[in-house]
Design a binder for these strands. Structure first.
Lengths: 196, 196
DNA sequence: TTATTCAACTAACAACCGTTAGTTTTGCAA
DNA sequence: TTGCAAAACTAACGGTTGTTAGTTGAATAA
């Protein structure tokens, strides 16, 4: 399973994946046609199949690339000896970093995962559920230590993830404010909301 | 333009709109076919066109029904003499109420508005931008009165709207917690994050 | 040189799409 | 009972979809 590289020379498949992510984001998975994708790569639709096996494979690669990135980073955070609040902040910063640097992929992964086919769909959902549970466990820890407000850990978890996603809507609006400032404001709002 | 009713006997068109909202939500606008929609209503696809003029009209009715509801309620809040924090809380409660009682419509409106055709697309976007600006003005007021933290009003606005949307993800899970408790926790997290 | 692989091409298929035209059924008002 | 309009039906059209088959030229390895 090819991975999306961030640097170096791109293989043809990586170019296709990049362009697919961009088109899926702006038009949606179903509304993006193989002919349209091919046109953007200056080739014929049929030629795409020399590099990929199906349209869904493109979506699958995008979704699981994003999922893998988040999972790897969470594992690293869990291994750290920091207090819950610092773990959460670290994680939020990584989410924001991903939303900015791999904007297309994260956006598509968040919205179009429904179009994955089995067994990949169940796989994806299970992975995400696990991710949310592990995050909620950190929140729970913070509550037990008296550092976080007494709210339902899963509510707080989904609320945090939802909040950082507001960057998606921000990207499209006028840039009179730096993405760094947006990030700092978001983290402030979330952490102050959490802290006891 | 027919409105979506919440009570009483439904006209055939209202039944169609309800079913369309449900299917759009679970499968997405493009992935929902007229034949599939008709099947759920126990009729033929062509028969739908005795009640509607196009597939897009269904999406349009859903999106603008939601937009109108929010706009009407915001106008009412603006006319009230309450302090900003109370206005915000009132508004959050209405968003949550809509997300619970008109779940399908709000979900579809949030995700599938991109598939509206001109001039309705521009119309929808302008309406939403205005809504966000009016909400940001209330936040700005709270900051100037020293009641809210000094963050960018638009960041705070989009963050709040994003946070209440986490209810969408909540609905699909099978956790044993009342929607009322979820609502209270969300409002706490948001307001405590905002308050100075 | 020759053989092989890679990646592009053209052409087309079978399925499905939203929608239209024309017809038949149904239920109510007269 | 008759007349009429609403709302269902059947059949089909033109277009688009993802994908396959078979071919061709260029690059690479022997």
């Amino acid at each position: 399973m090819a991975r999306l590289k961030t640097s170096g020379i791109q293989s043809r498949k990586e170019q296709i994946l990049d362009q697919a992510a961009a088109l899926f984001k702006t038009k949606g998975f179903n509304a993006t046609t193989m002919r349209h994708l091919a046109e953007h790569l200056q080739m014929e639709a049929a030629s795409l199949y020399n590099h990929i096996s199906s349209k869904e494979e493109l979506l699958r690669d995008i979704c699981f690339f994003v999922a893998d990135q988040f999972n790897e980073h969470l594992a690293q955070i869990e291994a750290d000896p920091f207090p819950p609040a610092q773990k959460i902040e670290n994680l939020l910063r990584f989410h924001i970093h991903m939303l900015i640097t791999r904007h297309n992929e994260v956006y598509v992964s968040n919205r179009d995962w429904k179009h994955l086919k089995e067994p990949h769909l169940s796989n994806f959902l299970q992975t995400r559920r696990q991710y949310e549970n592990r995050l909620a466990a950190i929140v729970q820890q913070g509550i037990e230590l008296g550092q976080f407000r007494r709210v339902h850990p899963h509510v707080a978890t989904l609320a945090m993830l939802s909040t950082v996603r507001s960057i998606e809507y921000w990207q499209r609006s006028k840039r009179q404010i730096s993405s760094r400032q947006v990030a700092e404001d978001l983290i402030t709002l979330i952490l102050k909301g959490m802290e006891q």
